[in-house]
């Protein structure tokens, strides 16, 4: 590829992975919202069957059929059995059709044991939606995948390659070829990692990027650092703060604002030391990886749902210069 890869939102397929608990779904939903606000028609696919992605749009659960959950945002939940049925319907001729139910159930059972089958049914459906859009049969400007966690994403995205190694001939092999090409095209696809500035999420992110580069040809997009705590004090501020925590100062503060003064000081000290512990991990992430970093601040809000998704989308929009 000689031309530089397009901006993230101008690609057609964005995967979001990350260690459990870092806010992967929220970030994926926020990207979808951001893209929709910029006039794109977006399909969000939830792969980890937790079924809470649509909560982030304050919409009820959705199934395999794409459903509009917010203006311009359609969502679907991946289900390998449905994916298989759809594949069989599209690829096989009529006589078998009547038996698809039981056959699909049997294959689904085998799929849960045979390596790579579940993964290929997942990635296959995703790639298929993107190809339909590229060829004008579906009108998604962007497909966003709330993908598997860092532990499983390599197996998932590597499925077409793994299956190709195992299956020498046949339609499956042919199909894995176009899937691999689509996944490897930096004009189309990007894999993004969500992390929080904590030890394990940072470790997993660094390891994952290394593994993806070594084992897959899927282009990396950005690292989204979620829940970044604000820097409260400059160095000079901190000297003032330390002086305030001396017993005499605390006594005077209590006299003027009440007995809660020491709790308030403790709260600020907690904020400073949390930030400091995390800064070490953030720095490690930044110096180890040569990927674009997008920062999302820690949100001190009372609720979840669309409002939070919107706040994260705003932060991401600013980071992307939109």
């Amino acid at each position: 590829m000689s031309s530089p890869a397009p901006a993230l939102l101008d690609r057609r397929l964005l995967f979001f992975t990350g260690k459990g608990g870092v806010g992967k779904s929220t970030v994926a939903a926020a990207f979808a919202l951001l893209a929709a606000e910029h006039g794109k028609r977006v399909l969000v696919i939830e792969v980890d069957a937790k079924g809470n992605l649509t909560d982030l749009f304050e919409h009820g659960p959705v199934g395999f059929e794409p459903t509009e959950v917010h203006p311009g945002v359609f969502a679907m939940t991946m289900n390998t059995q449905d994916s298989l049925q759809e594949y069989l319907k599209l690829n096989l001729k009529v006589p078998v059709l009547g038996r698809i139910g039981p056959v699909a159930r049997a294959l689904d059972f085998v799929a849960s044991a045979a390596p790579g089958v579940k993964e290929i049914l997942t990635v296959g459906k995703v790639a298929w939606e993107v190809r339909e859009a590229l060829e004008g049969r579906a009108d998604w400007d962007l497909v966003i995948v709330d993908a598997a966690a860092t532990g499983q994403i390599v197996a998932q995205l590597g499925a077409p390659g793994a299956i190709r190694e195992l299956v020498a001939v046949g339609p499956v092999r042919t199909q894995t070829e176009w899937m691999s090409e689509l996944l490897a095209d930096p004009a189309i696809t990007a894999l993004n990692v969500v992390a929080t500035p904590e030890e394990m999420p940072v470790n997993e992110t660094i390891d994952l990027v290394e593994t993806v580069r070594a084992e897959l040809s899927v282009p990396m997009g950005a690292v989204i650092v979620n829940r970044v705590l604000p820097e409260l004090f400059t160095h000079a501020d901190e000297e003032v703060f330390d002086a305030m925590r001396e017993p005499e100062a605390v006594a005077r503060l209590s006299a003027s604002v009440g007995t809660g003064a020491s709790a308030v000081l403790d709260g600020a000290r907690l904020a400073v030391s949390l930030r400091r512990t995390r800064a070490v991990h953030l720095a490690r992430l930044r110096t180890t990886l040569d990927l674009p970093m997008l920062y999302v601040p820690y949100l001190f809000v009372r609720s979840y749902g669309l409002r939070v998704t919107r706040m994260v989308a705003e932060a991401l929009g600013e980071e992307l210069g939109l």
């Binding site: 096989l92 056959v103 294959l107 046949g170 339609p171 499956v172």
Partner: peptide, 8 residues
């Protein structure tokens, strides 16, 4: 039949 056609 199905498995054979899909997987070889």
């Amino acid at each position: 039949q199905v498995a054979d056609r899909i997987l070889g």
